[in-house]
Amino acid sequence: MIQLSNVSKIYPPNAAALKGISLQIEKGECVFVTGPSGAGKTTLLKLLCREEEPSEGEISINGKNLIRLNSRGIARLRQQMGLLFQEFKFLPHMTALDNVALAGLVVGAPRGASYNKAYHLLREMGLEKKYNVKPLALSGGEQQRVAIARALMNDPIIVLADEPTENLDAELADETMRLFLESRERGTTIIVASHDLDFSQRYRTRVISLHEGYLVDDSKLASKEGRTG
């Protein structure tokens, strides 16, 4: 379970990206975080993977306070996460297959098994003919698919995806979401940041709306209120 209590993030000197966010996300839930550019969607995801620390408030995942994690704890947290951000963070001298398999190798998975799984994931993403190509030689959409494959490599318990379908055509965007939702069946919690409200509503999942750092709408709360009201 992910819990945010009154979380704010202020970048120096005084740019508030998030203001007093409190929310709870259950295990296996799929949540779309929407809002216009600058609403704080990416900052929220960065706080959840401990890329950033909150200026105020507390964030806990499965009862563990993220602020108190040391470097070993952060590494362990990220090993359990599939991260997909707009900056893909590939190793340019390695092939797409190497980049995906690396995520398995760093957690100590056997080499053969890591490469087999990496190849399988790349094939599912339609990259079976390009697995041996270095990331910079791939198109934006192809790079995105390599990043998705890498995010799913270690059967993560949480997937954080920032605009995961931005560079993909409609068919591939649906395929990507199918993969994410499939992993949800294993209990994976999915949090997707997207500025595209229509896209997020298509999957009939919980939608959280941010605006200028404030949480302005949460479909889960709205439906509860609707039921009780």
Binding site: S71, R72, A75, R78, Q79, M81, L91, R150
Partner: peptide, 12 residues
């Protein structure tokens, strides 16, 4: 390379 390793959860 170090940043990518940290990103994907490589232990220190």
């Amino acid at each position: 390379e170090i940043e990518v390793m940290q990103w994907i959860g490589a232990p220190e």
